[in-house]
């Protein structure tokens, strides 16, 4: 099924360099506790995309992300990362992951900012090897990218939420990934820090060509920032440009349907 083919340019450019999409989900489905959480999801992420995935609570956004990252298995269809089946995929350093801060983080964890960022090189440095000078340089470079280099020796728990979020991005960037995946990264981060945060994502996407996948419930901001938008409500109800999503009323429809669903239940 090609209904949700990410971009027409991919097929027209195919004759020149048949670059496979960084992420390709085909007929993905997932059940949790007997409930169908995801159904027949087809989605591609092309190089250079800034894809926003939005949807109401319980729409399966985080599950979809976990499937993309190999943390959960789709029960049907195929998941391909950089053209490879997810089960055979080994180049995990190509993917940077920024988790929901509240989930990932124990505020009293006794680690310095630099130790946290360097841990983003664990996979790429190789099992049972010590971090090299190159690993340290890459970690420092990532800290500079997010503007946190001067905090390198601080305890992570001593920073503000916004600063911690930037450190988590630096950790994800430390392996110099082609694809950065972010799960609700602005939850609990104040407005000013959010603005800085989206500025940083814009720079990464436009200046460095990092492909971004951002899951959020923050519809307004996302629609303004991303180049592609996927509206998820257990299945993909829309996939295209954010302008199109607004013009066709896809976003409004998704949330209206959802609120109807909620009122039915009560």
């Amino acid at each position: 099924m090609r209904t949700f083919e990410a971009s027409p340019t991919a097929s027209t450019a195919a004759s020149a360099t048949p670059a496979s999409p960084l992420v390709a989900l085909e007929h993905v489905c997932f059940r949790y506790g007997g409930e169908q959480v995801l159904h027949e999801v087809n989605l591609e992420v092309q190089i250079g995309d800034f894809l926003g995935i939005i949807g109401p609570n319980g729409a399966g956004k985080t599950t979809l992300l976990r499937i993309m990252l190999g943390l959960a298995r789709s029960e049907c269809g195929h998941v391909r990362l950089f053209g490879q089946d997810v089960r055979a995929f080994r180049d995990w350093h190509q993917i940077g992951y920024v988790p929901q801060k509240a989930v990932a983080f124990e505020a009293r964890f006794p680690a310095s900012v630099f130790e946290v960022v360097l841990s983003g090189r664990t996979g790429v440095a190789g099992l049972a090897r010590r971090f090299s000078a190159a690993d340290r340089e890459a970690a420092l470079g990532a800290l500079e990218t997010v503007g946190m280099a001067e905090y390198r020796d601080r305890l992570i728990g001593r920073l503000s939420s916004g600063q911690q979020q930037r450190v988590f991005i630096a950790r994800a960037l430390a392996s110099q990934p082609a694809l950065l995946v972010l799960d609700e990264p602005t939850v609990g981060v104040d407005v000013e820090a959010q603005e800085q945060f989206y500025g940083l994502l814009r720079r990464l996407n436009r200046e460095r060509g990092t492909t971004l996948v951002l899951v959020s419930h923050d519809v307004g901001v996302i629609a303004a920032e991303v180049t592609r938008l996927a509206c998820l409500n257990r299945t993909l109800v829309f996939h295209g440009s954010p302008e199109e999503a607004i013009r066709t009323g896809a976003i409004a429809r998704m949330y209206r349907d959802d609120s109807l669903l909620v009122t039915h239940r009560h």
């Binding site: 190999g70 989930v103 990932a104 841990s119 664990t122 049972a128 010590r130 950790r171």
Partner: peptide
């Protein structure tokens, strides 16, 4: 030998998994 892996897992088990740490 496994210091850096143990640190990564202790700090964020899921994050370590995404990096391909066993």
């Amino acid at each position: 030998i496994f210091y850096k892996e143990l640190f990564a897992i202790t700090f964020d088990e899921e994050g370590a998994r995404v990096q391909g740490v066993p």
